[in-house]
Design a protein around this nucleic acid. Structure first.
Lengths: 325, 325
DNA sequence: TTGAAAGCGCTAACAG
DNA sequence: CTGTTAGCGCTTTCAA
């Protein structure tokens, strides 16, 4: 900038004004400065700018895994909103490890991100307190923070979605409905289990529930065990996209009715088409990011807790009746 | 840092030494400093550090779209390598728009990223020249740079993969093999078309080729047209994951043999299973990132051009014969 | 082993 | 409309 200034024969500050499009520069001077900039190939050093202004125009995003289609969709939506606001996105995957989540968050904070959107892996977020007190806005998406932390959240209607799925299966005559969900330590998995139980009421049978990280062998073992019961399930409710896919892989010719939580590509092309309770990851990302920017613009109201509705999409598998088995 | 220094009764520089784990600090002094840090909740301001040191420990990644499973997988792999090297990842999606690609790259460069990995959308990268001359290493993945730019590349064997696919179909008796590919302006699409032509030799028929952005209506129209020919195709070769999925959606009961470029989740669960020429996006991401870090460590050898092999996975659809139609 | 001073490149505040 | 000065928080250099 100094070089540009002397090349253009003006003061440093004038260059700064031109670079930042500040008003109050004679057009001719500005032109001279721009010429010098082009000639020298100058580009503003953002680090210095950040240091001086105290704001980084950077948002941090911590998710579980970019390679998971749900979080990929969420990421893309967040990215779009962030870029539209002239900011950049630092992102990282926690891989469902609380330690990694915390490391990422702390690294992002050391870089002084202006705000943070996170899908937490752990359930203790007291480490965020200094940042929150320093005024960094944080929005939790998909899962809420641990106890004692009061921040904005954007969640899906997990309980309601699960109830919808079970109600759908009940209405098609099923009474033995199994639940194949993820590790119940995960908030969404727990909520969906709760909805399943609530809707099932007296029909609930612990032996028809399996909750674990969806590894093929484990899911196959759980399924085999259920189908070996005297009173086997006639329908399955799977707790998230990965559970659904894993379950489909280990059906081995069995043809129970099936409703899965989460939509996925090609669900409509399978035979039968897979009925799902669909979330909208892009919507969640967009809502979370927009909420964050509202905070960044100075909205200091009480923390908001947005719950996004989910939608049951019938495609065939959820409309099979016990007689079809 | 100043506050920490006065709280601990030492000089600024001593705090800096402790924070950075530099040797030559009396253990007792260091302890006192650490206590002060904890008490004040101090954390180093990375922006200032960056400004002073001139290195950001940040890598920029520009891809086409994080929500595309191929690039999501690639992103995840890049992210892992980057984090393992103690760096952070700035990422953005170009959405196949050259202007957006350039904006992202320029923004990343203004932030002084230490290196750049990109899947280009455009074919003019001369704008990178100042950065390259300034010594910023850049690796192109999946697609090469435009003319006149000499950088490291990590590409798949597109031509060879296409030839493999066509050879496979030929060996199952097909002579009328259509190609449904993406916009030929895209490097990978062009390479796959070339392989298709080469392997087909005299059997090539321009009427069996359709290359465009895979929008359902357009693909359906192209297919209808081909199947209306006197000599319709008995087999299809689709040019990438999105083309394959779109094609599957518009088959409408027709049952040609099919081999797709790119693997995708559930390809094995469809009926018939979809045979594919599989790339490995994680591998590509890992190789690109590792190459970048090798450059960052000072390797100034001539630019490297790595070609990753692809693998044909037979699952049923590619093994149908003309008689099965 | 410790510290003082300079300065990275920029913007804010305040003149002219 | 333009310029001067101070200082963001850190690391580097040099001295004690």
């Amino acid at each position: 900038m100094k070089d540009v200034a002397s090349a253009a024969g003006v003061a440093l500050k004038t260059v700064s004004r031109v670079v930042n499009g500040e008003p109050g520069v004679h057009p001719e001077t500005a032109e001279r400065v721009r010429a010098a900039i082009d000639q020298l190939g100058y580009s503003r050093n953002e680090s210095a700018r950040v240091l001086r202004r105290g704001t980084t125009a950077t948002i941090g995003l911590v998710i579980e895994d970019v390679a998971d289609p749900f979080y990929a969709g969420l990421s893309r939506a967040v990215e779009t909103v962030v870029i539209d606001h002239g900011c950049l996105l630092l992102s990282g995957s926690s891989g469902e490890q609380p330690g990694r989540e915390r490391e990422l968050v702390e690294t992002f904070c050391a870089r002084r991100v202006d705000g943070l959107i996170m899908v937490p892996a752990g359930d203790d977020h007291t480490y965020l307190r200094p940042e929150l007190e320093a005024g960094t806005p944080v929005v939790f998406a998909d899962r809420p923070p641990g106890a004692g932390i009061d921040v904005d959240t954007v969640l899906s209607d997990n309980v309601g979605g699960a109830r919808q799925a079970v109600r759908h299966l009940l209405s098609h005559g099923h009474r033995r409905i199994a639940f194949l969900g993820d590790d119940p330590a995960i908030f969404t998995a727990a909520g969906r289990l709760q909805g399943y139980k609530e809707e099932l009421g007296g029909l609930f049978d612990q032996r028809l529930v399996s909750m674990r990280t969806p590894a093929p062998e484990a899911v196959r073992a759980a399924m085999d065990h259920m189908f070996d019961l005297d009173d086997p399930p006639t329908a399955l409710f799977t707790g998230n996209g990965r559970c659904t896919v894993t379950t489909l892989r280990v059906l081995d010719g069995r043809r129970p009715a099936l409703v899965g939580f989460d939509d996925f590509e090609l669900a409509d092309l399978l035979d039968p088409g897979v009925s799902v309770v669909a979330q909208d990851p892009s919507w969640m990302g967009r809502v979370a990011a927009e909420l964050l920017f509202r905070r960044l613009r100075g909205d200091t109201g009480p923390s908001e807790h947005i719950e996004l509705p989910v939608r049951l999409i019938p495609r065939g598998s959820g409309e099979l009746t016990p007689g079809d088995l």
